[in-house]
């Protein structure tokens, strides 16, 4: 099963975990065959939101949601079940500073 671990951090904590540590923990997970992909993100101010309605493209700033924590990065992991995915999430360094949402990946229906 694949699970997406979404890392949420408050803006002030964006760089609380050194990149070096994230990179080496990512390497460890990759070496163990658990990590399919992982990337950190720039803060939400850099985001553009795109929609197409009635054939017209609209682009707005943000999402600027009211929540204090923002999506800061993601890890796509391979795990036997939800508990194994949770166990992997506990090894993702920013788990100490923010929170990680673990979601099972859905197969597209044929």
């Amino acid at each position: 099963m694949k699970y997406l671990c979404l890392v949420y951090l408050e803006k002030e904590k964006w760089h609380a975990v050194p990149d070096r540590e994230c990179a080496s923990s990512g390497d460890r997970l990759r070496d163990r065959g658990l990590l399919l992909a992982a990337e950190p993100l720039h803060p939400v101010e850099t985001a553009a939101t795109v929609r197409v309605r009635n054939g017209k493209v609209s682009v707005t700033d943000g999402p600027f949601a009211e929540t204090k924590e923002q999506l800061a990065g993601f890890y796509l992991v391979e795990a036997r079940d939800l508990n194994e995915a949770i166990q992997i999430a506990t090894k993702i360094p920013p788990v100490r500073e923010g929170s990680i949402e673990v979601r099972p990946v859905r197969e597209l229906e044929p």
């Binding site: 099963m1 079940d81 939800l82 099972p104």
Partner: peptide, 16 residues
């Protein structure tokens, strides 16, 4: 797996 047990006991997987 956690998901299989959750299904057997009709419990949401995160609860389990």
């Amino acid at each position: 797996t956690t998901e299989e047990i959750a299904q057997a006991f009709l419990t949401p997987a995160p609860t389990l």
